[in-house]
Amino acid sequence: MMLHGFRSSKQDFTFGSWKVTAAKNHIMKSKDIERLSEELNMPSLPEMLFGDNVLRIQHTDRYGIEFNAIDALKRVNNMEDTVKVACAQEWQDTRSDSEHTKEVLRPFDWTFTTDYRGTLFGDQLHIKVTNTEERIDIEKLKAREHIMFFEEVLLFEDELHDHGVSMISVKIRVMPSSFFLLQRFFLRVDGVLIRINDTRLYYEDGRDYMLREFSTRENTIAELKNIPAAFYTNPNEIAQHLTLKVTECEKLELPVMQLESSVN
């Protein structure tokens, strides 16, 4: 589990026409969580929900993309229990005498798996999303370039009733010629499976688009029996051993006015 300090912070970093904002705040209060739970029609929400945390990339023309916990939760399946654990039936049986059982235990994805890829925003101008064959050049990202700004923001985390962990965080690094963002959803259900949903966002200075890549990697624990168990708790280590199930690449085309305004 990550350690959480109680100091709220908000950092802004401006580079060229862009501003990155990283806001970190307290865990959401229980009354706000109850209200949100009703709003999202989900029986429960993650134990540690940072509803006011955000990582935002905004252009001077007031459009951009941000990553926040509530929009991430909106992408959770609130109608279907997608992962069964060995003790689920047992756990349900112990509560079967409760009159609220059906209501409380209606199926929903208690692992909080989300395929969230960020929230686009804009006043008059909007980013246009199209599919592309172009890929983020990972080799270029490995080049040793000065990092002008780095920040990581946790959106939510849950220990799944001591059956593992479900968490999503987003980090960004800004270099003189580009920025790179990685949002990672990491799920480990002990004895059952490990799943990673990654969203990568890359922008190179002077281009009129960003590249966004979404991927899902997943394996059952049985399939990972030859991998050291110590890796199971380390998303960076285990990611390299998981099977790629889904990959989608998109071009986020920036509004033309940006190019006009930079010429004048």
Rank of each mutant, 00 (worst) to 15 (best):
R117F: 02
E139H: 08
G118M: 05
F112C: 06
S98Q: 09
W110S: 06
K171C: 04
F121T: 00
T111I: 01
I168V: 14
G164A: 09
K171L: 05
F108C: 03
F112Y: 15
D109T: 00
V85N: 09
D162R: 14
G164S: 04
S98M: 12
E139P: 00
T119E: 10
Q89I: 07
L125S: 09
Q89N: 13
F149G: 05
V104H: 03
A86V: 09
T94F: 12
M167K: 14
S98I: 00
C87N: 13
I168Y: 01
E151S: 15
T113L: 08
I147G: 00
W110L: 05
D137T: 02
R106Q: 11
K171T: 01
E99D: 14
I172M: 06
Y116D: 02
T94V: 13
D137S: 05
V85Y: 11
T111Y: 07
M148W: 05
T111D: 06
R173M: 11
L141I: 06
D123E: 13
L155C: 07
E103V: 13
E99T: 08
E103G: 05
F150I: 00
H146R: 14
M167G: 06
F112E: 03
G164C: 04
T130E: 10
D97S: 12
A143G: 04
L105T: 09
G164D: 03
G122M: 01
M148L: 15
V85H: 11
E151H: 12
M167N: 08
C87P: 00
M148C: 07
F149Q: 07
Q92A: 15
K140Y: 14
E157Y: 03
G122L: 03
R144T: 07
D115Y: 10
L125G: 05
H100S: 13
Y116L: 02
H161G: 11
F121Q: 02
L154R: 06
V153C: 04
I168M: 12
K84D: 11
I138W: 08
T132N: 03
L125K: 05
S166Q: 01
E157K: 12
I147M: 07
H161W: 11
V170D: 04
T111L: 05
I136Q: 04
S96Y: 10
L125T: 01
L155T: 03
I136E: 08
R173Q: 15
I147E: 11
I172T: 08
L141N: 10
R95N: 11
L105V: 02
D137H: 00
A86S: 14
D93G: 00
F108T: 00
A88D: 15
R135D: 10
L105A: 11
D158L: 02
E103Q: 07
K142C: 05
A88L: 11
I172C: 07
E103M: 11
H146K: 15
K84Y: 11
L154M: 13
E99Y: 08
I127G: 03
M167R: 14
